[in-house]
Design a protein around this nucleic acid. Structure first.
Length: 205
DNA sequence: TGCCAGGCCCTCTTTAGGGCCTT
């Protein structure tokens, strides 16, 4: 079974180290080339959402005031993800929040965390830029809803993952793309991709 | 309705600086 858990956070800021907390999370399970299951919830961060971020995401203080506590939602999200490898667009951001909120629950992430932005930079270096919205447009991926809402962005990232795997299969004539291959590619320079494919290129996907 | 990070990657590089990307 080759399943990815694609996640996206909306938050009150850029860094949990500076007091930012999540306001929404979505998880999309990708299996056998399809989006097979979804989890999404707003959550009450317990801190005010700055005005500019409310404008960016459309998530207001009123909306999260009635939502479940962060701890409740994160426990559900962690159970939904299970041991599937994680993937996010600019994973450095989502990984910080995922790990910080799990620590508050005395949990620790066990699986790898891959990044669709790093993969897209290597596989589609010619893209105008590597923002999620730009890649959706330039690669003609399915429209999923309002940008900067967790489920729409997680679904867009899931479609991007499928497109990245499709491109690798076509370019290197592979039967499938394993977790190990994607993780290896994101960890090397563009010029070292061929070596990665030779080493990890056989696997179901 | 304040404050604001940090890893990756390119290049005018590696004894560094700055843009990208996430909210």
């Amino acid at each position: 079974m080759n399943t990815w858990a694609v996640i996206d956070f909306e938050t009150t800021g850029l860094s949990p180290d500076q007091g930012a907390r999540p306001t929404e999370i979505a998880v999309v399970l990708v299996q056998d080339g399809q989006l097979v299951d979804r989890y999404q919830s707003l959550m009450n961060p317990g801190v005010p959402i700055p005005y500019d971020i409310q404008a960016l995401t459309g998530i207001s203080n009123d909306m999260v005031r009635r939502a479940p506590a962060v701890a409740t939602v994160m426990a559900e999200a962690a159970a939904f993800v299970g041991t599937h490898p994680l993937l996010a667009h600019n994973a450095a951001f989502d990984k910080k929040f995922w790990d910080a909120e799990l620590r508050r629950l005395s949990l620790m992430r066990q699986q790898e965390f891959a990044c669709s932005m790093l993969l897209a930079r290597r596989i589609f270096p010619e893209a105008p830029n590597h923002k999620l919205g730009t890649l959706v447009q330039s690669l003609r991926l399915p429209a999923t809803g309002r940008y900067h809402r967790a489920l729409a962005d997680a679904e867009a990232t899931a479609y991007l993952l499928l497109r990245l795997k499709q491109e690798l299969r076509m370019r290197f004539k592979l039967p499938g793309i394993s977790h190990d291959l994607l993780l290896a590619i994101q960890g090397v320079s563009r010029s070292a991709m061929d070596g990665c494919v030779a080493k990890f290129g056989q696997g179901a996907g």
